[in-house]
Design a protein around this nucleic acid. Structure first.
Lengths: 154, 154
DNA sequence: ATTTTTATCGCAATATTATTGCCATAATTC
DNA sequence: GAATTATGGCAATAATATTGCGATAAAAAT
């Protein structure tokens, strides 16, 4: 799909303000509401826009501890990996699980919990109990300098 | 602020479907539209909802390479850190910059670029040129097993 | 326990917004 | 340069958001 100036503007704006009205959206990009809405629908249909999400304040929800966990697996079999991924996907505290390159770890998890007690419980009772997990190393996030969901539009 | 059953439902739903209409939202949580809207506004006012964002498909935008960069600083002075953070915040490819604990790095960056050429350019021409950056270690993301923006509602 | 107070709901009226069909015009192709 | 296709704008209709207000339920106080 070919993106023109309008499409790029729409994507950029909707990344910033996902609940903006179509009328204001139209004004901002310099189109009338009807073609504007048609373009947004087209971007959704094409799968360029995959969804819309509210962003919440973690602290106000009592979630004060954000951590990165690097995980190594003992044996690199597809079953081990599939099982690990299924187990990890079911944990609501796991915001991100990335299969990464590098000698130090196979996966990096990003998890959010209330406090250190909850972290300990998650790590000891859930994550280290998953079959195949051999090495675990935690880093804690002291500050989120940048936290964007918005992709750069090429 | 005290959250009841309705508020929690609203937060959960809006995290999943940020552009759902107020009417459908009201139906789903079992309230009529007016108190539903008033609650959403209250959650926004209280800062529990900080914004709404469209989620885009990175691949369809031509952004195929996601990487984690661990960065160590030579001297841990406030000026060095402030300067680094300002420079990094200005780069659109940087989706996340976390100040983390651990001996291996001071920061972890998450960056997204078109390809390895773009990655090389970003690393060599931008990031390693920032004053104070002494150690850099890259990991590449092979697969995003979990990638949620939705926080667990306590 | 009963009264007072406060919070919050649902209804109804109004304002705003989304959606669709249609024609005109601009861009593209032949 | 003519034919074709794509895309914009207008206007009518449908749907949704928004607000005031009275009723009801929950909470606090006596």
């Amino acid at each position: 799909m070919e993106l023109d100036r309008y499409d790029r503007q729409l994507l950029a704006l909707l990344q910033q303000e996902g609940r903006i009205s179509n009328q204001e959206l139209a004004e901002r990009i310099g189109l009338s509401p009807s073609p504007c809405l048609r373009r947004v629908r087209a971007l959704e249909e094409a799968g360029l826009i995959t969804g819309y999400h509210a962003e919440l304040d973690a602290k106000k929800l009592g979630l004060t501890l954000l951590a990165l966990i690097h995980i190594s697996m003992d044996r690199h079999t597809p079953e081990r990996f599939a099982n690990f991924e299924a187990r990890v996907s079911a944990l609501p505290e796991v915001l991100e699980c990335l299969l990464i390159t590098g000698q130090d770890a196979d996966y990096q998890l990003k998890v959010i919990v209330r406090d250190m007690d909850a972290y300990q419980a998650l790590l000891l009772e859930q994550i280290t109990r998953i079959e195949g997990v051999s090495g675990v190393h935690s880093s804690f996030v002291m500050r989120r300098v940048v936290d964007k969901s918005a992709l750069p539009i090429p």
